[in-house]
Nucleic acid binder design. Structure first.
Lengths: 193, 193
DNA sequence: TCTTCAAGTCATCGAACGCTGACTTGACGG
DNA sequence: CCGTCAAGTCAGCGTTCGATGACTTGAAGA
C-alpha cells in the first residue's frame, strides 16, 4: 500500500510537470492550486517552489508549446483541415484529464500574457498552416475564419455540449468540413483524414 | 466631490446588477469578487448578500437571459446569419465589457450549471432559428456547425485577438459569411444585413 | 420632534490561497 | 559507522475569499 519512491529530483520534477499540465488544462490557471498539483504528484507543495520558483513559472514550463503533436503537417494538404479537426475535437485528451484544453484556455484567458501565448500558438499551429493553403486575396483572414470554426466546434462540442455536435462522429462532420474548407480556402479540400 | 446618494433599495440593487454584469463578463465568475463588484457600485460588499443572498445568485440574476434583443428574427431570412454575426461580433455590448454575452459567459464555463445555461441560450437563440432555414438531412447538425462558427469568430476576435480578425470590418467578412452559410444551410444566403 | 424600520456599514469569521524559512530524512562516500 | 548534502517535509505568515450578525444611520409618518 504505502510504496515509497526513490529520491529522484528529475523524476519528481517530471511528475510535477505532468500532473500540473493535467490540472492546468482541466481547471485553468487560477483554479488549479499548487496544493492540488502537489497532492496529485504525491509530494509536498513546497517542492513546487523549490523546483520552479513560483506557480507562474510552473505553469509556463508545464504549458510550454511543443508538446502538441506536430504530425499535423504530415500527410496530404487537402486533408489538413480534417486532421486539425481531429486534433481539436476528437483527439483523446486523456492526458489532459479528459477535459478539453480549450476550456482551460478560456479560463486562463484572464491573464494578459496567457492570452498572448494562446494567440501565438493558434497562429503558429493553425492559422499559418492554413494560410499557406489558401488561394486568392484575404488569405490570412480566411485562414483565421477557418481556425475560428475549428475552435468553435471544439467549444460547442465539448464545453457547451450542444446536442447534435456532442453525439456526432468525425465521419458525420466530414462532408461539411469538405464544404466549408473548400469554400473558405478556395481550393478542393477533403473532409476526412 | 462627496456627493451622497439617496437611500433607494431598488436603485442600489439595479446598480449592483449592472456593475456585476460587467465584472462577470470581463473577468469571469471566479475572478470577479463581491468586494470588487461592491466597490464598483460604491456600496458595502455586505449589501450583495442582503439583496441577493449569495454571489452565485447575484451571478444568476445578473447574467439572466432576456436582455438579448430578439430583432434577430426580423428581416429577410437570407440575411439571418449576417445579422447573427453582427450581434455576436460587431454590436456594442458595452454592458458586457464590449463582448457578446455568450463569449463573456464562456469565461465562467468552469461551473456545470453555467454550461447548461449557455447551451440553452445557444440552442434557443441560434441553433433553432438556423435549423429552420436549413434544408436537407442533418439540419440540426449543420445549424450547430454554423453556430459554432459564429461563437468561434467571437472568441478568436475578442479573446484571442487573432490579427486579421481583430481588424476586420463587418464588410470584410460578408463574402465569406455568404459562402459558408450558403454551403452549410444548403440554400443561398447573403453575407451582409 | 420623536419613533420606527429599512438601508447601509463594521468587525470579523473560517477557509483557502501563494509562498517562506527552518527543519527532518534518506542515500552515498569515506 | 558516520558525516554530509540534497531531497523532501512541516509549521506558519500574510492576504484574500465568501459569508454572517450586530451595529449605525437616514428619512418618512405620527
Amino acid at each position: 500500500m504505502a510504496e515509497k519512491r526513490k529520491r529522484d529530483r528529475e523524476a519528481t520534477r517530471a511528475r510535477l510537470l505532468e500532473v500540473a499540465r493535467l490540472r492546468f488544462a482541466r481547471d485553468g490557471y487560477d483554479a488549479a492550486s499548487v496544493r492540488d498539483i502537489a497532492h496529485d504528484a504525491d509530494v509536498d507543495a513546497t517542492l513546487i517552489f523549490r523546483y520552479f520558483g513560483s506557480k507562474k513559472r510552473l505553469f509556463d514550463e508545464a504549458t510550454a508549446p511543443g508538446q502538441v503533436p506536430d504530425d499535423l503537417l504530415d500527410g496530404p494538404p487537402e486533408e489538413l483541415v480534417a486532421r486539425m479537426l481531429r486534433s481539436v475535437v476528437y483527439q483523446d485528451w486523456s492526458t489532459h484529464g479528459g477535459e478539453h484544453p480549450l476550456v482551460a484556455m478560456l479560463k486562463s484567458a484572464g491573464h494578459q500574457d496567457t492570452r498572448q501565448r494562446i494567440r501565438q500558438e493558434v497562429c503558429d499551429t493553425y492559422v499559418d498552416a492554413l494560410e499557406e493553403l489558401a488561394e486568392g486575396p484575404d488569405r490570412q483572414l480566411r485562414a483565421e475564419l477557418l481556425s475560428a470554426w475549428l475552435v468553435g466546434i471544439g467549444i460547442l462540442r465539448s464545453v457547451v455540449a450542444t446536442p447534435a455536435l456532442a453525439e456526432a462522429e468525425a465521419a458525420d462532420l466530414a462532408p461539411h468540413v469538405a464544404t466549408v474548407a473548400t469554400g473558405l480556402l478556395g481550393r478542393p479540400m477533403s473532409g476526412s483524414a
